[in-house]
Amino acid sequence: MINLSQRSLLALFSRIVLGVVLIYASIDKIIHPDAFAKLIGNYNVLPFGLENVVAIILPTLELIVGCCLILGIMLDGSAIITAGMMIVFIFALSQAMIRGIDVSCGCFNVSEAEEGSQIGFRRIIEDIIFLGLSIMLLNRGERKWELYPKT
């Protein structure tokens, strides 16, 4: 069994990894909302042109949650949202792969379809790891290095 301080360190590690990944992923999408909306449309999962609403909200949510994770603000809520996003991404990626639709991932970069940004098992596995980290963060036990709310 790992002791309490190791668990705190592990939680801090998860916070930083998830935070950096989320912030990094959000930047290009915030700069190019139109390109991101088109990419979401290519996944063919949303009806009625809802891809635009998602393209507006999702990147900002990623950015804000990413900052909250790193700073330790409302960590439980942030971890739940991160886990929720990862579940949605895993679902969207898998259904696209199963249906064999040819879409670029839009995970980190929407500007150009660079090599390796296509959907693949790698992206799904990454998201499963991130999901694991956020669940671990939810069960972190001791609350250390957190700004708000203080316990």
Binding site: G49, N52, V53, L61, I64, M74, G77, I81
Partner: peptide, 28 residues
């Protein structure tokens, strides 16, 4: 916390989208 974060992000993103020059329409 989930509620606060989602509401805050939504409001902030709609505001940003409305103000910026390359904002997109709410529905495609």
């Amino acid at each position: 916390q989930v509620f606060i974060l989602i509401v805050f992000s939504s409001l902030f993103s709609f505001l940003l989208n409305g103000l910026r020059s390359n904002g997109i329409p709410l529905l495609a």
